[in-house]
Structure formats: structure tokens, C-alpha cells
Design a protein around this nucleic acid. Structure first.
Lengths: 107, 107
DNA sequence: TCACTTAGTTACTTTATGTAATGAAGTATA
DNA sequence: TATACTTCATTACATAAAGTAACTAAGTGA
């Protein structure tokens, strides 16, 4: 029996979104351009993992990293068009969660 | 500086969706009721992880597990209302991926 | 000089996934 | 009645991903 394989584009999108923190980083950047430590403290991610995630997202052309050559140098992270185009997905998750999720009380 | 914390409902939804395989399992069940080994071979997940995921999703009331007392016993997995309500999220990811994702050639 | 900041990195620990073998309950065939 | 096969799992073990904490380089400011 040949199985209908899952579309590789969809699979790739899923593997991106099912990495921990990816969605929250994008969610945070939907608010606008931010610095490393802003994202870090806003979503409570560690420096190491944020650094990894931002690299992944840059490679996927979802996040843009800009070095502003002032002194001291300023580094700005923002969403590309591709990144911004994920907003509907994230808004849907947001809406769904408001309606359907009961937050855990013991956390 | 007090940070605007992220909504716990949204966070919980995100942590659910960012578990590996969760979305693909739901995606598969959007096609209708299925048996363990159907899901397994359709999305290429291992028995162990599928077992874990289905338990998680049952606990979240996203998936319903029904034991049909025939002989041999038949076990059917399907989406609850809550599970079905995730369809728009998944369709959005699907649409987004079709437009924006270049599949990796080397995989 | 000393303390503090930003944007990371490094070494190490813990948790999550993956792989492969196994089990229980049943069927199907010789 | 062996035996081989199926389904829905579980177990033991290996590897990969994420978390923690200390550290670095370059700069500020007192």
C-alpha cells in the first residue's frame, strides 16, 4: 500500500513551527524591531537558545538581523516579509487558545 | 521594568503545538477516524512517540480514544470538537507553506 | 579602576525524541 | 497445536534538543 506522503513544504513548515520558541520569537517580533535582550526577557528564553533560534530564523529568511554601525554597535532583529506573512497563523493560534484553552492552575 | 507577560492560554497552546508531531497527528486525524497503525505509517512516527502524543492529546481533550469491544478489540482515534476547531490553524500553515516554503533539496 | 550593559559563546545537565526489541491478545494457516 | 502474522502498545537504551550558569568582548559611566 503506497501511502499518500505528506507535502514536503508543509512538513518543512511544521518542523519549523514545532521547534520550541520559534513561534514565540516571531510573535514577539510582530510587535516590531527588537534587540536581542528585549526578546530574551520578553519571552523568557535563554541566551543560548535565542541565539540558536535567531540563526535558524535568519537562515529561513523569516528574521532579518541588522547591524547598525554606531558606537556601540546596535543589533536589530525584525521580521522579513516572509516572517510577517506568518501573522495570520499566529493570530489563529491566539484566537483558538482564548476560546479553547484552560490554563494550568498549578504552574 | 515589569514586562508584559505572555498570555498563559496562548503560551499553553504554543507549547502544545511546538511539541514535535502534535500538529501532524492532528492533521492526519482531520481526515477522519483512524487506527494507531494508520496514523503511524501515514506520518512516519515511531510507535513510542505516537503513543506518547496520543496520550498528551487525549489529556488535552483534543483526541478521543474509543475502544470498540469487538473481537479482536478495535481502537479508534478521532478528533474532539476542540481538536476539529484547530483546523483553521492547520489550513493556514498549509497555505503559508505552499506560498513561502522552498523545500530542501538535500533531504 | 570598578561596576554595569549588550550580544553572544562555552561547558555541562536535563529532557525529549528516536530506534529496536519485546509483549499480550488475537487471527490465519499447515 | 505449533508457527507465523497482526495490532497496539511498552521497555531499554542511544542520540539530539533545550536548559542553566558561568564567561567573553566591546563598550558605557562614575
Amino acid at each position: 500500500m503506497t501511502q499518500p506522503t505528506i507535502c514536503p513544504k508543509f512538513e518543512k513548515a511544521i518542523s519549523l513551527l514545532s521547534q520550541k520558541w520559534t513561534t514565540l520569537v516571531i510573535y514577539q517580533l510582530l510587535l516590531g524591531t527588537q534587540h536581542f535582550s528585549e526578546i530574551r526577557s520578553a519571552i523568557g528564553i535563554s541566551g543560548k537558545v535565542l541565539s540558536d533560534r535567531l540563526k535558524d530564523l535568519e537562515n529561513q529568511q523569516i528574521v532579518k538581523r541588522e547591524v547598525i554601525p554606531e558606537t556601540p554597535v546596535i543589533i536589530e532583529y525584525s521580521l522579513t516579509e516572509k516572517g510577517k506573512s506568518m501573522e495570520p497563523i499566529i493570530r489563529d493560534i491566539e484566537k483558538w487558545s482564548q476560546f479553547w484553552i484552560e490554563p494550568d492552575l498549578n504552574e
